[in-house]
Every structure is written in C-alpha cells, then in structure tokens.
Computed example of a mutant assay.
Amino acid sequence: MSDHEGGDCREVLTEVYLYLDLECSDDRRFVIKQHLDECSPCLREFGIEQEVKALVNRCCGQEQAPSELKERLRAKLSELVVEHETAREPG
C-alpha cells in the first residue's frame, strides 16, 4: 500500500476500529479521516470494517466488551493486517 500525507495505509487500517469507536484523539481522527478521503483502497477496506461493526452492533446491542478482550482483538487485527500486507509484497 502507499503512503499519503494523511498517514500510512497500514497504520490507518490498523487504527480503523479506534476511529470507528471514537477511541482516538481528535487529531488522530482528523489524520485517519483525511487519509480515508484520499485513498480509495483504504476507503474500500474501511467500508468493510464499518459493515462488520454495524453487524456486531445489531447482534450484540449495547453490550460492552471487557477492555481486555478489546485489546486482544486489536492486537490480533494488527497481526492480520501485517500478515496480509506481507503476503501481498512481491518476492
């Protein structure tokens, strides 16, 4: 993936759940939003993330996940993004 003035694609996709959950600073939200506005591949990926989040919200209602679970999920998602990017790199 490419780099943009608004931030690196891998970094943005790693933080998309923080962005969706409003769990990052306003400055970071601005950087992520700017990147998504300018990067079609990340925007498509973000659209998928939004749909997954909406589905989970419909199924689970207003239940709050324990913070330990959230951290484990974020770590696993970060690993998957890195694995996905590594697999796509030539050579």
Rank of each mutant, 00 (worst) to 15 (best):
M1W: 10
M1H: 10
H4F: 12
H4T: 11
E5Q: 11
E5P: 02
E5N: 05
G7N: 03
G7Y: 03
D8V: 04
C9I: 01
C9V: 00
R10G: 08
E11K: 06
E11M: 05
V12K: 00
V12E: 01
V12C: 03
L13E: 06
T14V: 11
E15I: 01
V16M: 05
Y17P: 01
L18Q: 13
L18A: 14
Y19A: 05
C24R: 02
S25A: 09
S25C: 04
S25Y: 06
D26V: 13
D26K: 12
D27E: 15
F30G: 10
I32D: 04
I32T: 05
I32G: 03
Q34I: 03
Q34S: 14
D37M: 02
E38T: 02
C39V: 00
C39Y: 00
C39K: 00
S40Y: 02
S40P: 03
P41K: 00
P41I: 00
C42R: 00
L43N: 11
R44F: 01
E45N: 06
F46R: 00
G47H: 02
G47T: 03
G47L: 02
E49L: 03
K53E: 12
K53T: 10
K53D: 09
A54T: 05
A54E: 13
A54F: 08
L55H: 08
V56S: 13
N57W: 07
C60I: 06
C60K: 11
G61W: 04
G61Q: 03
Q62H: 14
Q62D: 14
Q62Y: 14
E63W: 09
E63I: 10
Q64A: 12
A65G: 04
A65F: 08
P66F: 07
S67G: 05
S67R: 09
S67F: 06
E68Q: 10
L69M: 11
E71R: 15
R72E: 13
R72G: 02
L73S: 10
R74G: 08
A75I: 06
L77C: 10
L77H: 15
S78L: 07
S78A: 15
S78R: 13
E79K: 09
L80H: 11
V81Y: 05
V82T: 15
V82M: 09
H84L: 14
E85P: 00
E85M: 12
T86Y: 14
A87N: 13
A87C: 06
A87D: 12
A87V: 03
A87M: 10
R88W: 08
R88T: 08
R88E: 13
E89D: 11
E89Y: 09
P90L: 14
